[in-house]
Amino acid sequence: MKQNLRLTRSEKEIMDKFWEKEEGFTCSEIVDASPDRSWRKSSAHLLINALLKKGFLEVSGFKKSAKNYARVFKAKFSYTDYAIKIIMAGSTDDNIRKLIYKLINEATLEELEEMKMIVE
């Protein structure tokens, strides 16, 4: 089954929290980490469930929260991996080749040396 790579604006904002911190969050922690958003916990739960279904998040454990235990979620892959998946999904082999050539032509000598070590 092909993964749905499209994210709504709100889903992307939640994923950005996971990608920025590179750690797990409970639903309440996501709401608390987003003071600029007016998400309620119920809205955040819906978004997290959508991200679980799309394969962006996974349950990584449980954390005691007041009297109950809450699921801890973490990103299944990094933002870099997501960006690569987006590029690969919408590109032909020729376009990918052109992108690689463009990256090489604009890279610094240090970056080229690093790329060479990776390739070797």
Rank of each mutant, 00 (worst) to 15 (best):
E20G: 01
S42A: 11
T26M: 02
K54Q: 08
G55M: 02
D36K: 07
D36S: 12
I118G: 02
N4K: 07
L112Y: 01
T26K: 00
V31C: 09
E22N: 14
F18P: 11
A33S: 15
A89P: 00
I87K: 05
K63F: 01
A44H: 09
W39V: 07
S60V: 10
D93N: 09
I100W: 08
K54C: 08
K63P: 00
D94T: 07
S38W: 07
E58G: 00
F73K: 01
H45P: 02
K41R: 12
A50Q: 13
W19Y: 07
E20R: 04
T92E: 11
F73V: 01
T108L: 04
L47I: 13
R71F: 01
A44D: 13
W39A: 13
F56S: 01
V119Q: 05
E11T: 01
A33Y: 06
K17N: 06
T80Y: 06
K98E: 15
W39Q: 08
F56K: 00
Q3A: 07
N4W: 02
S34D: 05
K76N: 12
T26N: 02
V72K: 03
K76Q: 10
M1P: 02
E58W: 00
S10H: 11
D16F: 07
I14T: 13
W19S: 12
V119G: 08
V72Y: 05
E22M: 09
I86L: 14
P35I: 12
K116H: 10
G61I: 08
I14Y: 06
K21M: 11
P35N: 14
L46Q: 12
L51A: 04
E29I: 03
N49Y: 06
K98Q: 15
V59K: 00
S60K: 04
G90W: 05
L51R: 02
L46Y: 12
S42K: 10
R40F: 04
D93R: 08
H45G: 11
F18N: 12
D16Q: 10
D32T: 08
S60F: 02
V72F: 02
D81A: 14
S78H: 03
E13Y: 00
I14E: 14
F73N: 06
R40S: 14
T92M: 05
V31Y: 01
T80W: 02
G61E: 15
N95I: 04
K17R: 09
E23Q: 13
K98R: 10
A66G: 13
R97D: 15
K53N: 13
L5R: 06
N105M: 09
T8V: 08
I84D: 03
Y82L: 11
K74N: 14
S34V: 04
E20A: 08
K85A: 15
D16L: 09
K102L: 09
K41D: 15
T80G: 11
K76V: 11
S65T: 10
C27M: 13
K85V: 02
R6A: 14
L7M: 15
S38G: 13
I118V: 12
R9N: 12
G90I: 03
E114Y: 11
I14R: 03
L7T: 14
A44T: 14
M15E: 13
S28T: 14
